[in-house]
Amino acid sequence: MRIRATVAAVTGALALSAFAAPASQAADSAWFVQAQAAKAHAGQSVSSAKSALAADAAAADLGVTFSNLKVAKAVKVGTSAHVSTTVTYTLTHGANYDLTSDDFANGPYLYKGKFEAPDAVLFGYDAATCNATSTTTANCSGKIDIYPGEGDLINSDAGKWSAGALALQYSTGDVSDQGALGSTLVQRASQLTVNAAPEPVKKGKTVTVTGKLSRANWETNKYAGYATQKVVLQFRKKTSSTYTNVKGITSSSTGTLKTTTKATVDGYYRFTFAGTTTTPAVSAAGDYVDVK
Rank of each mutant, 00 (worst) to 15 (best):
A285F: 07
A38L: 03
L53T: 02
L122A: 03
G142T: 07
L122T: 00
S171Y: 04
Y109N: 02
G267F: 09
G179F: 07
Y111C: 04
D103N: 05
S251G: 05
V232I: 12
A263M: 06
A8V: 14
T259G: 09
A163H: 02
Y288M: 03
G286V: 01
Y89A: 06
M1D: 12
H82S: 12
D56P: 06
A42F: 15
A60L: 04
T86Q: 10
A30M: 14
A60S: 02
Q36W: 06
T193Q: 00
T210D: 09
R270H: 01
D152C: 01
K114V: 12
P118I: 03
A263D: 08
S17T: 15
T86L: 09
T250Y: 11
T244W: 05
V75L: 03
D103S: 06
Y147S: 08
G12M: 11
K39Q: 10
G43H: 04
S251K: 13
A74G: 13
T210H: 06
P108D: 06
I154Y: 03
V121T: 12
I146T: 05
G63L: 15
T92P: 01
G255H: 12
G164A: 05
S156E: 13
A281Q: 08
N155I: 01
G173H: 05
F271A: 00
K143Q: 05
G182A: 13
E150Q: 15
G211D: 05
T260Y: 06
A59G: 14
N195M: 07
R215I: 02
T256S: 14
P22I: 07
L62D: 11
A18E: 12
F66H: 06
D174N: 08
K143D: 06
S67L: 11
T137I: 06
V46L: 14
S51A: 12
P22A: 09
Y109V: 06
T206V: 15
Q25F: 09
Y269M: 04
T129K: 15
K292M: 12
